[in-house]
Amino acid sequence: MDQDRRAQWLRGVLDLCVLGLLARGDSYGYQLAQSLQAAGLGAIQGGTLYPVLLRLQRSGLVTVYWQEGGGGPARKYYRLSPAGHTVLAETAVQWAAFAGGVGAILQERTAR
């Protein structure tokens, strides 16, 4: 995949994907990166992911807490806040419409 275009797409959706993953349960940075990769978004570097998490924390869409790891130092866990739930629900609907439109246009191209 063209790396520039992928980066552009990610810039638009990364925060929403993180919110979506957190809706399934609390998680920490590295775990989120692995989940994103498993979901097909490709490898997400820490340098990209953590600033996004910080922004989400700043805008109150996620809350954080520290938890002792098993036998290791504490990890920073993220939890979706009520505001985050609301934003996720709204944007998910908007995305479905948007992506649907894009898909329809491109489907014509691939069909030909």
């Binding site: 940075g29 590295y30 570097q45 820490g46 340098g47 953590y50 290791g72 130092p73 504490a74």
Partner: peptide
């Protein structure tokens, strides 16, 4: 916090810092 989180990430992933964070 930022440094601690980055340290944890590097430990978990085993990646090189320059590659993971720049």
């Amino acid at each position: 916090h930022v440094v601690a989180e980055a340290a944890a990430h590097l430990r978990d992933s085993g990646e090189q810092p320059l590659r993971a964070f720049g």
